[in-house]
Each structure stands twice: as C-alpha cells, then as structure tokens.
C-alpha cells in the first residue's frame, strides 16, 4: 500500500468515526471507544469496494480484524 492509499483509508476512517483523533491513536479499539459500530463498518465496506476496489462479503470480516486503525490498514493492505 502506498502513501496515497494509506491517506485515502485514513480519510475514510476519519469521516466514518467523526474524529481525526484516530490518526494519532492507531491502536485504540475503535469499537470499545464508541467510534465504530455496525453502521460505520457498513460505510467502510462500501467505501473499500467503491473507492479502493476491495470487495469483502460482510460475514468474511471478523470484528477483531478491523478493531483498530492499524488493523484496518493491515486488512486493506492485504487485499489491495
């Protein structure tokens, strides 16, 4: 994943979570922090597919895989 793609994912995440604090706190559990929920995950899945071309069926994603910013970045990098 190149710099531009990483920025793109971060921009998506800031949009979905509604705060840019996540950029500096990349290992915080977003579900526990109340920043990410089912609606947020759905927005992310649509964005991944439409903006990054990564198609992931909803039940192929475990919440553990996308619970922090770093994990989400790794999740995307693996599938690009």
């Amino acid at each position: 994943m190149d710099e531009a793609q990483e920025q793109e994912v971060l921009r998506l995440l800031i949009d979905v979570c509604g705060t840019d604090a996540i950029d500096t706190e990349r290992d915080v559990d977003l579900f526990d922090a109340g920043l990410l929920d089912s609606l947020g995950v759905t927005q992310l899945l649509v964005s991944f597919e439409d903006d990054l071309g990564i198609k992931v069926p909803p039940t192929a994603v475990e919440r553990d895989e996308i619970s922090t910013v770093n994990r989400i970045l790794a999740f995307v990098a693996e599938r690009l």
Binding site: L39, T42, L45, V46, P58, T59
Partner: peptide, 22 residues
Amino acid sequence: DYLYTRLAMFLMRTKMFKGRRV
C-alpha cells in the same frame, strides 16, 4: 450480518441515498 449490513450496503448505493450513507 445477514440482513442489516446487506440492506444498508444496498441502500447506500441507490440514487436516493447518493452521498447520504449515514
């Protein structure tokens, strides 16, 4: 997992909800 997410993803892509994913 089997209803909400799929329905939401479907709706987010419709014309009616373009740019209004939330």
